Amino acid sequence: MFRISAEVASDYSSRALGLMNRSVMPKHEGMIFVYPDKGLHCMWMKDTLIPLSVAFLDDNGEIINVERMSPQTETSHCAKAPARFALEMNAGWFESKGLGPGTKIKGVGSLPKGR
């Protein structure tokens, strides 16, 4: 089991800002994006300075897919099935823990509703 401390981005402005303009992120910290509706949500890294990995999660917190994202790029990284959440961590974090599609991330049920 791994404990994650994640900032919550549950409204449009916090999701749009995300982790932009940060130069470091502690080892077991990240950001979870909460969307109001399931969808094929996508992430990009235009003004993000650190390499990240994103796990797209369904309503129950099950990982749909994990994507590695390079800093300061405009490449879209999208959910491969309708997702309700996206969890960003330092690049390679999910892989280093053996977490991939089908793994359940606990605690998403207590997150605020996306708006």
Rank of each mutant, 00 (worst) to 15 (best):
A9D: 02
S96G: 11
L57N: 02
W44K: 00
G39W: 07
M25K: 04
S96V: 04
L17H: 15
T48Y: 05
L52C: 01
K27H: 05
T48N: 10
L52F: 01
K27S: 12
V34S: 05
R3P: 08
K38N: 14
D58W: 02
L49S: 01
H28T: 11
C42K: 02
L57Y: 13
L111W: 10
N90V: 09
K46G: 05
I63E: 00
K113H: 11
H77E: 00
I105R: 01
R115H: 13
R3M: 04
R84P: 11
A9I: 02
G100I: 09
I32M: 10
L19G: 06
G92R: 11
E62Q: 00
K46Q: 03
L19Q: 04
A83E: 14
F56N: 05
S53V: 06
F33P: 04
F2E: 05
T103E: 05
S23D: 13
S13Q: 11
T73E: 13
R3D: 11
I50F: 00
G98D: 10
G18Y: 13
A81T: 08
R22H: 14
E29M: 09
G61P: 08
P51E: 05
H41R: 10
K106G: 00
A91T: 12
G107D: 12
S14C: 12
F56A: 01
S14P: 07
H77G: 06
A91H: 14
A6C: 01
R22G: 03
G98C: 11
V54S: 04
P26Y: 03
F94S: 08
R115P: 07
L57D: 03
L99H: 02
M1W: 11
E29Q: 15
M89I: 07
L40S: 13
L40V: 09
P51G: 02
M45N: 06
K104C: 06
A79T: 02
H28E: 02
S70K: 13
R84G: 01
S5Q: 14
G102S: 10
P26K: 05
P36Q: 09
L40R: 06
A91Y: 12
M89F: 01
N21Q: 09
G61H: 07
R68H: 14
I105K: 10
R22F: 00
R115Y: 13
G92Y: 06
T103F: 10
L19R: 10
Q72G: 01
N60A: 00
L99F: 15
Q72C: 08
F94Q: 07
P112Y: 14
P82R: 10
T73F: 10
P71H: 00
F56V: 09
R84I: 04
L40H: 15
H41L: 07
M45P: 01
Y12Q: 12
W93R: 00
F56R: 14
M45C: 13
M45L: 12
L17M: 03
K97R: 02
M69D: 00
C42A: 13
S96Y: 01
K97P: 02
D59F: 11
L49C: 07
A16W: 03
M89E: 01
I64H: 08
R84S: 07
P82C: 09
N21V: 03
H41N: 12
C78L: 09
V54P: 04
L17I: 08
I105M: 01
